[in-house]
Amino acid sequence: MNRIVVGAHYGLKDWLAQRITAVVMAAYTLIVLAAVMGGATSSQEAWRAFMSHGLIRFFTFLFIVSLCYHAWVGVRDIWMDYIKPTGIRLFLHALTLLALIGYAGWAIQIIWRL
């Protein structure tokens, strides 16, 4: 059978996820920017209080997950465009994915410990 590796869904799902995660991150950026202008970083106590607020923690969590998914698609596209040998590409894909999963765990742990 003649398989086409880049079949249906595969590309569209990631293309769409790339956009949705981008919108989530853009919205979060504006929220944090507004908070900073409103004095959320005026002191360390204010910053801790802001970041540990339930709703903000929820949005920060969404931001972290969005960032990692977004970065995965973007960095994977870079490897796909420039790295031709399958072995090296597979290695870089795995490395990227593992790093991002680790970063997500680390970042979530920081906000959940507050």
Binding site: W47, M51, W106, A107, I110
Partner: peptide, 11 residues
């Protein structure tokens, strides 16, 4: 990693 580390230290 630098950015997450800075976030951690800031809190």
């Amino acid at each position: 990693p630098l950015l997450i580390w800075l976030l951690q230290l800031s809190l």
